[in-house]
Nucleic acid binder design. Structure first.
Lengths: 130, 130
DNA sequence: AAGTATACTTACAAAAATGTGCCTAAAGCA
DNA sequence: TGCTTTAGGCACATTTTTGTAAGTATACTT
């Protein structure tokens, strides 16, 4: 499953440098980058192509402006999302997945498959018995 | 990507019943079941087979007893983890993935691939330049 | 009789995550 | 002049999550 047994749950404080982090279990590392309430939701919404800040807000009705900003900033820092500012007024900013972010496509799709298979049974049942 | 555009970020309060939930985007649903600091870590550790409570604790050194208990209880409620109590003294309890939980194997492996590819570069680089 | 082992529970405390409300800039348009 | 639009920033408040420390039960061993 993973090279580094027995350290799957280690803390990763700011003080720990990238090199040390990279020696930990990749699953733990991935989880640490994608944790939080909104990160995977935002990535999910960007899979099909770039969206503007406002478009993302409308696509994720329950996210607040603040959380969308924070989430995007963190995804940007981690090299998962690109921020492209058009120097116009009113402002126009587009967010897209980097190559690293695109690499999450199979994660997102298997996550979707799992959700569909295990928790959307009623909807499927209705559709199939019709 | 998903049947239900525009509702990817909806809240899922307790008051919302299973039927309503199942009509939401499967990715959002999956994320809601697997959120939290420890859930995926625990699932990851159970992928290779059942473990006892104490074994899980040792495998995830930074988790507290309390958080392990809480996490396992929630995974159990959601049908992802099985709890098997052996009626002996001292207690012996084994945790394993249900079929639903096993369905997360591809999620875990693509997550691992992504982590390995994007954040463990130094270790790979060292290994490859040697 | 006291200590060991295992899998917890509970009350309380601290920390982290998230939400709210209000404010800004700068150009275009009525 | 003042309203609209877009993408935020900021201070503060609240909620949610996580951690700490202590206690419980019971059979077996020393």
């Amino acid at each position: 499953m993973c090279d580094n047994l027995h350290i799957h749950g280690l803390k990763m404080p700011e003080s720990m440098d990238e090199e040390t982090r990279s020696q930990l279990c990749p699953v733990v590392y991935a989880v640490s980058k994608l944790g939080g309430k909104w990160k995977l939701i935002v990535v999910h919404n960007l899979i099909d192509g770039p969206l503007r800040f406002g478009e993302l807000r409308r696509a994720i009705p329950d996210i607040t402006q603040r959380m969308l900003t924070l989430t995007l900033r963190e995804l940007e820092e981690d090299g998962i999302v690109n921020r492209h500012v058009f120097e116009v007024v009113p402002p126009h900013v587009e967010y897209s997945l980097t190559e690293v972010g695109q690499g999450l496509e199979s994660v997102m799709s298997s996550l979707g498959d799992w959700g569909r298979a295990n928790f959307a049974q009623k909807r499927n049942a209705v559709a199939q018995t019709a």
